[in-house]
């Protein structure tokens, strides 16, 4: 199992009512209740205007989550999203249900699961590898385990960004997310002066209770989007707590994360 310590050197959460970093920090520390507000347009600073024009909410959600993180130009990247860009699926499927079936080329090339990863590498010029993954409702834990193995095996910093937007109205009756959520973590084998905390992850059989948010007002975000499952870990790191966080993982397993203040 993964028994090596990995350091967290950057954290970011993007969600309705959490775009202001100071306010977000107070909510994550438990000093303030969370109240959802409409998300802004989320223009990521990393994208040139001509590229930004072609982006969708999902692409901007992922890139905005990374925006405030100070990563190196050889970082590996893990993009984790349960559903990818269903706004695009909705638009393409609408076109495909017409007689003409005219699919927009821009929509199509933005439709792949790794589109945000593509824009990230174009915006930053980073040519190291990224991976884009999904594991249904366990996508946050799957992304975190992938990031941990990359740090330990490839011996490189890894930027993890996990994100899912709400479901478009046509498809909402089949799958429902309460809020859009984006979470980014910078993981490293090295401890820095500004290291936020350390984690040790291990996969366990389903036997412990899943950790809830310490700030009870965040519970509806934790259970309202697969990426929300990462919030208790973010809270523990921000508070500098030394605790074990348990998150559901694939096949009824769990990811146990021992968080340590460093």
């Amino acid at each position: 199992m993964l028994n090596n310590t990995v350091y967290i050197n950057g954290i970011s959460v993007i969600a309705p009512g959490m775009e202001d970093s100071n306010k977000s920090l107070e909510i994550l520390k438990g000093n303030m209740d969370w109240h959802p507000e409409a998300l802004s347009k989320m223009t990521p600073s990393s994208l040139p205007a001509n590229e930004a024009r072609r982006t969708t909410i999902v692409i901007r959600l992922a890139l905005k989550a990374i925006d405030s993180i100070d990563y190196k130009n050889d970082t590996l990247a893990v993009f984790a999203s349960s559903e990818g860009d269903l706004d695009i699926t909705d638009k393409i499927c609408k076109s495909l249900s017409t007689k003409e079936k005219m699919v927009s080329p821009t929509l199509f090339h933005n439709s792949v699961h790794n589109t945000p990863a593509g824009y990230f590498s174009i915006a930053t010029g980073i040519q190291t590898a990224s991976v884009s993954l999904s594991a249904g409702d366990n996508t946050f834990s799957a992304g975190l385990i992938e990031a941990l193995t990359q740090v330990l095996i490839e011996k490189n910093d890894v930027l993890l960004v996990a994100y899912d937007n709400v479901i478009p109205s046509n498809l909402e009756c089949f799958r429902h997310f309460e809020y859009p959520v984006g979470i980014a973590l910078l993981l490293s084998a090295d401890k820095h002066l500004d290291t936020i905390g350390s984690i040790e992850g291990s996969v366990i059989n389903n036997q412990k209770s899943v950790t809830q948010c310490f700030n009870k007002s965040l519970e509806k975000m934790r259970i309202g989007n697969p990426i929300g499952m990462g919030l208790p870990l973010i809270e523990a790191l921000v508070k500098g707590a030394s605790v074990e966080i348990v998150i559901p993982y694939v096949n009824q397993n769990q990811l146990s994360i021992k968080v340590n203040n460093v």
């Binding site: 559903e83 699926t89 699961h113 790794n114 249904g136 366990n138 694939v250 096949n251």
Partner: peptide, 29 residues
């Protein structure tokens, strides 16, 4: 949707069809 359209669907199907309960995911690049 979660069992068909979702990007992770095929990994869960393969696990259950083969009776496997370990780690894994779908990569979609």
């Amino acid at each position: 949707m979660l069992y068909t359209n979702n990007t992770g669907s095929v990994q869960r199907y393969v696990c259950r069809s083969l009776g496997l309960t370990g780690v894994g995911m779908v990569i979609s690049t």
